[in-house]
């Protein structure tokens, strides 16, 4: 059992490392992990005097917005890129579970993006001289871990969805702004039409944002974080099922291109 766990961990780690090595040369990573958060922070907060509470909420929203873009463009494109390289079939028909390989790659992409986003945001925050209200730094760290986990799971799910359609690239672009809006990252969810208000409830980033807003200005409310974790688990489960279906269908239809 221990040996299997170790082997599984090693596979995920190798996949993570391979993805991160590949990300160094992708210009899109610079766009989503550096240019976007920096531009957003300057636009939203560059000319305003923010209270520590406002600063926390603003930076949190910007980081989460950038994380969503990163998830769609980096982790979400993992399998589409594999098909482009001609490595898809080898990656999903190895001795190990394709979900494990995809998890490692998606985690690698998400962590790489998250580090970029946090680092570039930190530089801007230092330049603008923001002061934060962080009464519960431990819980902020937990929220960050949930964001990474959620981005990984959502990235896996998107990667599978982008694999079964020929228009993955178009979908990537089409998904960005609707989620910004529906997730309450650009406008408050209350401003949405009534018939659309259930949608934000399905987006984990919206719950993380609610949690961060709450902990920055008052007592810790665990319910939003719990919902975010549950949604993350749901994304992960859906991704595993979706990948299995996609790989089986690929083997039946002959759409798993090796080269």
């Amino acid at each position: 059992m221990t040996e299997r766990l170790l082997a599984g961990g090693w596979v995920a780690w190798m996949a993570l490392r391979a993805e991160q090595q590949g990300m160094r040369t992708r210009p899109m990573v610079v766009v989503v992990a550096v240019i976007q958060p920096v531009a957003l922070l300057f636009v939203v907060a560059g000319t305003r005097d923010l209270t520590p509470g406002e600063a926390t909420v603003t930076v949190s929203a910007v980081v989460l917005t950038a994380m969503w873009s990163a998830t769609v463009w980096t982790a979400g494109g993992v399998l589409r890129r594999e098909r482009g390289y001609g490595t898809l079939a080898r990656s999903v028909t190895s001795l190990y579970s394709p979900s494990l390989v995809l998890f490692g790659r998606s985690l690698g992409a998400t962590v790489y993006s998250a580090v970029g986003i946090l680092a570039s945001s930190a530089v801007v925050v230092a330049l603008l001289g923001f002061r934060f209200a962080v009464p519960h730094p431990g819980w902020l760290l937990v929220a960050l871990l949930v964001v990474v986990a959620s981005g990984t799971a959502l990235g896996m799910l998107l990667a599978c969805l982008f694999l079964v359609t020929r228009h993955g690239l178009a979908w990537s672009g089409a998904l960005i702004y609707p989620v910004f809006i529906l997730g309450g990252l650009l406008i408050p969810p209350d401003a949405l039409p009534v018939w659309l208000r259930w949608v934000p409830a399905l987006l984990s980033l919206r719950w993380v944002h609610e949690f961060v807003v709450a902990v920055s200005g008052g007592p810790v409310r665990l319910a939003p974080l719990g919902v975010a974790v549950a949604l993350t688990a749901g994304y992960l489960l859906l991704a595993v099922v979706c990948l299995r279906v996609a790989v089986d269908a690929g083997r039946r239809k002959g759409t798993l291109e090796l080269v």
Partner: peptide, 21 residues
């Protein structure tokens, strides 16, 4: 095709060798 162009030959081989068991 069939390799990650940005990775070295050794890294590609190491990764796929791992997947091959």
């Amino acid at each position: 095709r069939g390799f990650y162009g940005a990775l070295s030959g050794r890294d590609n081989l190491r990764y796929f060798a791992m997947l091959a068991g």
